[in-house]
Amino acid sequence: MSTLLARNLIVDGRLEGVSLALAPGTVTAIVGPNGAGKSTLLAALAGLVPGAVSLGSDALRALPPRRRAQRIGYLPQSGEVAWNLSVRTLAALGRLPHDAGAADDARAIDAALRQLDLAALAERPVAQLSGGERARALLARVLAGEPDWVLADEPLAALDLSHQQVLLAQLRALAGAGRGVVLVLHDLALAMNHADRVAVLDRGRLVAEGAPAAVLTPALIAQVWGVAARWLGEPGARALALG
């Protein structure tokens, strides 16, 4: 697995010189206020926005799109599914960049559905899913592609507490298996408790990057979000108290 490296990313008006090195085997959370450039940074790391991003020794924009797609899985925030596919057919779209053969495809799809607790819903049309089930099905699509890197924009937003835990455990397991996981998160407590590294963006600039406890200090939260807050509880189970 290779490092994902962004060098001085500039995207007009949205990113103003962001440099970031992401190591495989870790869960990195990108946090920041609305409009800070989180989604743009994630899209750039996925190679969808012009910018100097490299994966190991390869410049991302120079990789053939299919090769890039085999190595980087990207889950946008929109959650769009234009046609009323079954959960299994939806997850199978993650195999599109591969030419691995039907048996390999079926194995990867089954594994992804199992990991996200969707095996029982495999034949259900997406129109009949709850918001949380749909969010899991969309992530199953990414996992079915078995990418080295999983880049997900707000994957937990529509999930209830127990499914947030299921999903975070799965993402942790991916990182434990040596893959890279990058999540855009709004919930600072989730970033604090579950990420290995946190990157804080503010108005297109990277203002801090490092271990969550070292980065997400009350002083930085006050500076970036303009909110007075303090952490309660034990490491690994912290909660943010406002005021």
């Binding site: 899209a43 996925a46 190679g47 969808l48 053939p64 799109p65 299919r66 090769r67 890039r68 797609a69 085999q70 980087i72 899985g73 990207y74 889950l75 946008p76 929109s78 769009e80 599914v81 234009a82 046609w83 596919l85 939806l90 779209l93 993650g94 599109l96 960049p97 969309l138 699509r141 592609g145």
Partner: peptide, 16 residues
């Protein structure tokens, strides 16, 4: 097929 997931996701799946 990839476009089912929207333009950004389709491009991330290798669609030109």
């Amino acid at each position: 097929d990839a476009l089912t997931l929207g333009e950004a996701a389709a491009r991330s799946l290798g669609v030109d």
